[in-house]
Nucleic acid binder design. Sequence first.
DNA 1: TCTCTTATCGAGAGTGAGTCGCAATTGGGT
DNA 2: ACCCAATTGCGACTCACTCTCGATAAGAGA
Lengths: 132, 132
Amino acid sequence: MLSLLRARGGRATASRRILLEVLFDSHDHRSVEELAAAVQSRAPDVHLSTIYRNLEELEELGVIAHTHLGHGPATYQLATSAHAHLLCERCGRRYEAPAELFAGLARAARQRYGFTIDPRHFAILGRCAECA
Amino acid sequence: MLSLLRARGGRATASRRILLEVLFDSHDHRSVEELAAAVQSRAPDVHLSTIYRNLEELEELGVIAHTHLGHGPATYQLATSAHAHLLCERCGRRYEAPAELFAGLARAARQRYGFTIDPRHFAILGRCAECA
DNA sequence: TCTCTTATCGAGAGTGAGTCGCAATTGGGT
DNA sequence: ACCCAATTGCGACTCACTCTCGATAAGAGA
């Protein structure tokens, strides 16, 4: 993965290695603030703006992806573990929604508008059973 | 609608009347910036923070609703004309999606998680035919 | 290993979209 | 007309980024 970076003229710097390691260790989404804390516990001088830039770079590379869960800040994860979400707008409860839930919508959107949905980028808001 | 406000202990102030008139005149979503410009063309002293507070108040009343179209700022419209959107994340093209497109997802989410979706609050991102 | 080009970095200022605290104003029930 | 809580204007503030800039350091080539 680091050589993928190099192949594009990029460089495998310490802050990128650590960021990638942190992302591999996180088996859930992490906000930038959380990622920064984890990276900085190992290399205190890594600046927040570097984390943002590296996340952007790695995302362009297709290695990671970000998701918006409601109104909060973006969350990042490995591209391989990206998935859709249902998020309760009252209590914040979150469900990970498998792609097949969106099969009907995906088909209808394609037929009617030629539109290909990516349900993983923004969560679907609504109410959970308790809050409904 | 103003008496609905009063019934709740609220007041029908000039800025609220004008804001509502602007919203009734807009037959599309409007960003806060646009709404502010329209309101201020009629009453220049209305402050942005007042617009924000009034939008919040009217939304609590159920009269208006806001929607997030991708990464941009929120957009507001009358609650009666709220609907779901498909938004191309490359070119920004927007489709208004009728509720029946979401019927399958709504049913599946309810059955599997007891979750009631509100597909109008956040747009569904993806790629339009041209950008796919 | 040394050099050199330039990608990347840390630091800090800047931006967009709201949100908050406060004193002055005003709607509207009485 | 009176009164007082709701509302307003204003500015300061927060949050989540984003940009600029001079310094640093990867890593390709010698």
